Simulated scan of single mutants.
Amino acid sequence: MADSQLERWGAASLLAVCALIGVPVLLAAERPTTGPPWVWWSCYLGLIALFVLGFRETPPERAVRGLLLPGLALTGAATVLLAPRAGYTAILLVFVTAYAAHLGSRRAVLALLLANSTVAAAAAALAVSTVMEVVLTWLLYAMLQLCTVWAVRSEQREAAARRRLAAANTDLRAATALLAESSRAGERLRIARELHDLLGHQLTALVLELEVASHRGDPAARKHVERARGLARELLGDVRTAVGELRTGTPDLRLALAEVVAELPHPRVHLDVDGGLEPDEACTAALIRCVQEAVTNTIRHSGAANLWIEVARSGDGGIVLTARDDGRGAAALRLGHGLTGIRERVAQLGGAVSFDTRSGFTLRARVPAP
Rank of each mutant, 00 (worst) to 15 (best):
G10T: 11
S13I: 04
L14A: 14
C18M: 11
A19S: 14
L20R: 14
I21S: 01
I21L: 09
G22K: 02
V23C: 00
L26K: 06
E30A: 04
T34H: 08
G35T: 05
P36V: 02
W41F: 04
L45P: 12
G46H: 13
L50N: 10
V52S: 10
L53Q: 15
L53C: 13
E57D: 14
E57Y: 06
E57L: 03
L68C: 09
L69A: 09
T79I: 00
T79E: 01
L82N: 02
V94R: 02
T97P: 04
A100V: 05
A100I: 05
A101M: 06
L103T: 04
A115F: 12
A120E: 12
A127I: 04
V131N: 09
V131S: 13
T148S: 15
V149W: 09
V149F: 11
E155G: 15
E158A: 10
A161K: 14
A167M: 02
A167R: 07
N169D: 14
T170S: 05
L172F: 06
A175C: 04
A185I: 03
D197E: 15
Q202H: 14
L203Y: 07
A205Y: 08
E209M: 06
E211N: 13
D218W: 00
H224R: 13
A228K: 10
R233A: 10
L235G: 02
G237W: 00
V239K: 07
T250L: 03
P251G: 07
D252Q: 05
L255E: 14
A256D: 09
V260Y: 02
V260N: 04
P265Q: 07
P279N: 12
D280Y: 11
E281F: 06
A286E: 06
V311R: 08
R313W: 03
I319V: 15
I319L: 15
D325M: 05
A330S: 13
A330I: 00
L335H: 13
G336H: 05
L339F: 08
T340L: 01
R343V: 05
V346I: 12
V353H: 05
S359C: 01
F361W: 10
T362D: 03
V367S: 12
A369H: 14
